[in-house]
Structure formats: C-alpha cells, structure tokens
Design a protein around this nucleic acid. Structure first.
Lengths: 224, 224
DNA sequence: ACCTGAACACCGTTCAAGT
DNA sequence: ACCTGAACACCGTTCAAGT
C-alpha cells in the first residue's frame, strides 16, 4: 500500500527521482550546479515542490550523500580480512571517481546514517577478524577511512595536481624561495606512475600497521 | 617605491586587508558567508572594487588558502626528524581548528603555491633525514599530509560526529539493519577520550611506517 | 589603475493560494 | 499532501561611466 500523489507517482519513487536528478546534475556540473531550482526544473516541477520531500537544500545534500553511499558494494564477508579491506578501499576510491562532486561532502556528514553504518560495520568486522584489540578498532577504522577518503578526495579535488609537466620548472624560479629538499629529489618522482598504484602501496603500509597493532607479524612491506 | 592608490593605501596592503577581512568572515560565518559583496562591504567598498585585486571569487578563495597556509609555522630544522613531523602535523591540525571553514578548501588546491611548497619541502627534508629512499619520499609525503589534512577536516567538518551520547542507542533500533561488529564492541569505545590523543596514536603508527620504509627498526608501537 | 552604480541572470526560502 | 506563482533578500559578474 504505497502512498501516491495526484500524478500517481509513489512518494518514495519521487524522492529517489529527485536524488537521481540531483546526482546527475552534480556529476555533470559540479556541486555548485546543484540548485533547488535546477533540480526541480529537470524533474519537471517547481523548486517549491521539492520541499515536501526535503526540508531544504542541506537535507537534499544529505540525501545525495546517502544515495552515493548506497552505491558502494560491501566485500564478500567470507574473504580474508586483508582482501575485504582492500576491496572496500578500492570500491570507495572508484566511487569518489564516479561522483567527484559528492565525495567531499562526506567530510561534513557524520557516519551515523544506515548507509554509512553498514560500511563502518564491515570495517569493524575485518579489523576484529585481523585480531585488532577492541579498544583500538574504532581508532583504526577512523584512521583507515580518513586516509582512503582523503586520498580519493585529493585526487578528484585536484590537491595532487594535474600531473601536467612544467610545474617543477617554475618551482626553481620562484623568487626568494629556497626548496632545499626538492632539489635533492629527481623531478620525475614528484608524481607517481599511477595514482592507483600509489594508493595500493599506501594501503599495504596501513595493512602492515593493522597487523602490528593486532600483534601479528607484518606480512608485506610497502615498496612501489 | 610601493604603488599607492588615490586613498594612499598601498595596493599590497589593500590585498592583504581584503584577505584578512575574508578570513574573519569565514571564521565567523563559514565559507558560505564569504561573498564578494559581504567582504567588500566590510572593507568599506563596492563589490566591484575587489576585481582589480582578484580576478573573481575563485581567485579570492585561492588567496584565502594562501593566507591561512602562511600562518603555519615550520618546525626547527635542527630538531630530530620525528619531532619535526609531529610538530608540523600538530601545527596543521591546530590551524584547521582555528580556521575550520578554510581547511576543506586545501583538498581542491594543488600544493604548488610558495606557501604550500615550503611546507612540502620541510616534510621532504624530514623524510630524507629519516632515511626514506628518494623514490618513496613524494609518496610518503602525500600519505602523511593526506592523513593529517583528512583527520583535521573530519574533526572540524563533523564527520567524526559530535561525540554527544545517544547516537549508539539509536543504532540498535535501526529497522532492518544488523550491525554485527558494532554489537561486539563496548559502546563507550566509539569515541576516544580526546581527538588529540587519537591523533597522536595515529601519528605514532605512521612514523613507524616511515621507519620501516627507511629500513630502520621501528622504535615505537602505537598503543593508546 | 581603482572605484561606482545600474543591470543581468541567477540563488534559497517564505507565504498565500490553489487542488 | 502536493504543487504553483509571486515575492523577498540575496548571489557573481559585466558594462559603461566616473576620477
């Protein structure tokens, strides 16, 4: 017995339609393109017609984060904990690449929605299976998720730079700025072959931390 | 021979005055309170008067990031590398707490401005002194700065939650959501005593990673 | 060069009114 | 309950005009 409005559209479907539209607009034009008016127009309705579904723009953005988080597929619970953590990290990174405008919003929404809690729980489970003491599980989860989110947002947000050449040449000529350590490093090492490969190396290092915290011997060193 | 406008104000001072004003507004009302019109009004000028100094709002926000980054004090180069990295991390975290509205902007600006490069160079130097192989220095720098920025932004942005009680009680009752691992953990461990203490533990773990990558024996395990 | 004032094409949200 | 249309108080930016 789903509720229906005059047009015969189930209200839950309408809500999802609004979020799908908002996500499409965000993917195409960035978060600043997501206006109540633009979303409404694409849905084929007035901006005010969104308010029965979302209290305001903030609520719509909350919904957008949930919509994106729901896309994240959890790893197979039967897999080894290392694989589960790696799969989850890669899935999160790919998600950020798919929805670069929405990813940064995760920094300002607490992970207390059902969509977020199921992810946290999967990480908790992997850490417990790894042998991490229970008084360290929450900390390690935050450390891991902070790094993964931070790395992915740095990539899509542009913090890591565009990897176009020429930036280094300029550095040498910056007036009155001495970059001692930069000059000791080969220039081509500033950017990695592949951001995914670097992500893998970082994950390997963090998994080693987890093994250490768990009291088990670290199995793999990082390396490139 | 500094250039002066009709009012007798040096143009460089005018630029700084605009940025100081923008920062004050951001600190008080968040980033969305920083409008060309609001900044101009506080400076005592029309919005259009900002355009000779900044090409547009994006350029003003770039300047704001530089203004904040310039506040970060570099560690004593004579100190041991571990202390230098820790001091830098804590200084960055405090900076984010002082200017919570500006910190997230760092994710979308590449670290290629002089203000940013001097920070990166200080980290490079510490990592080289630690014995990190040169082909790993840039990667480790990104891993470290990504974590530090991500942690600080998570704190001030609200991702880590408000640490008010009650959220956990709700979790148990979320309809149709089974949080297996959550139920195995004592509820009071969800949030740490102090976010700063957790930050310290995380840093200790990351410093241990650096020691491992450097080939030196890890000196300190994490612990709480 | 620096600044103004008017104008344009937008915003989010409230409110009274319709069905 | 859901939606409309007008209105209010904002935006960033362009443009012609002033000094």
């Amino acid at each position: 017995m789903t509720e229906r409005n005059r047009g015969g559209v189930a209200v839950a479907d309408r809500r999802r339609e609004i979020l799908d539209t908002a996500l499409a607009i965000a993917d195409e034009g960035g978060i600043e393109a997501v206006s109540m008016r633009a979303v409404a127009q694409r849905v084929g309705v007035t901006a005010m017609a969104l308010y029965p579904h979302f209290r305001g723009k903030e609520a719509l953005l909350d919904g957008l984060v949930g919509r994106v988080l729901a896309e994240l597929t959890l790893p197979d619970p039967a897999a080894p904990w290392r694989d589960r953590l790696r799969d989850l990290a890669h899935a999160a990174r790919r998600l950020a690449h798919r929805h670069p405008a929405v990813a940064p919003l995760l920094f300002s929404r607490p992970a207390v929605t059902p969509d977020a809690l199921r992810v946290v729980d999967a990480i908790y489970q992997a850490l417990l299976d790894a042998g991490v003491p229970s008084d360290q599980v929450a900390r390690i989860e935050r450390m891991l998720s902070t790094f993964v989110l931070g790395y992915a947002v740095s990539e899509v947000g542009g913090r890591f730079g565009t990897a176009t050449m020429g930036t280094r040449e300029k550095r040498g000529q910056l007036p009155g700025l001495v970059l001692q350590a930069h000059n000791e490093l080969p220039p081509w090492l500033d950017a990695p072959w592949s951001w995914e490969a670097e992500f893998d190396s970082d994950l390997a290092d963090l998994v080693a931390v987890i093994s250490t915290v768990a009291g088990a011997p670290s199995t793999g060193k990082a390396g490139r």
